[in-house]
């Protein structure tokens, strides 16, 4: 269960429920991990092949010290790869979109020390647009969802999310329900006001 308090928002309302938590599509992080996989494959190849290559082609250098240097270089490379992979994972894992019954919350980790958190009330939504472009996004069904509010505010963007069409339908449905609830509350307030008079 998501802990909305950790996202540094004002208190969640009593009637508010989390509908969905969305991450970017797995292919988005896979593209960044290709270089990690290539580096890992090179490391594994080097671990098994370099000692034999040294003994075959550089026999004069074949001693314990040479192997220590080769393994040290490989170990350093592995450490750098691991830290780079961890940074990519952190960037992916901490980018989330939360859809609740009242609002949409966008948490974007834009860099190591740059984090943007914003929210948008469902009742303020004017337009929701979906964009899926390219061969791979079409086949894997991922893309962007743009949520436009009234006025000149910049639009909310769900970036590279899976099944954007379903997300768009969900937002539209929740937005209608939110508008109905706010109309009902307004009606109740007017009735209470007229009864008190």
């Amino acid at each position: 269960m998501i802990n909305l308090g950790k996202l540094h928002f004002r208190d969640i309302g009593k009637q508010e429920r989390v509908i969905r938590v969305i991450h970017r599509h797995w292919f988005d992080i896979f593209k960044q991990f290709i270089i990690i996989f290539a580096g890992t494959a090179f490391l594994v190849w080097g671990f098994f092949s370099l000692p034999d290559l040294i003994s075959d082609f550089l026999p004069k250098l074949e001693n314990t010290n040479t192997y220590a240097i080769v393994f040290f270089i490989e170990s350093t490379f592995a450490l750098i790869l691991w830290l780079y992979a961890s940074l990519i994972w952190i960037d992916y894992h901490l980018d989330i979109w939360v859809i609740t019954t009242e609002r949409i919350i966008n948490v974007e980790q834009k860099g190591v020390f740059v984090r943007q958190v914003s929210e948008l009330k469902l009742s303020k939504i004017q337009d929701v647009t979906t964009k899926v472009g390219g061969v791979i996004p079409t086949i894997l069904n991922y893309g962007n969802v743009y949520v436009q509010t009234a006025g000149q505010e910049t639009r909310f963007v769900f970036r590279h999310i899976p099944d954007p069409y379903h997300t768009k339908s969900e937002i539209m449905k929740l937005q209608k329900q939110a508008l109905q609830r706010s109309t009902q509350r307004l009606g109740e307030m007017v009735r209470e006001g007229s009864m008190n008079m």
Partner: peptide, 10 residues
């Protein structure tokens, strides 16, 4: 990285 995991993971 550890700081980000502890502080921001939900």
């Amino acid at each position: 990285i550890i700081f980000h995991i502890i502080r921001y993971s939900y």
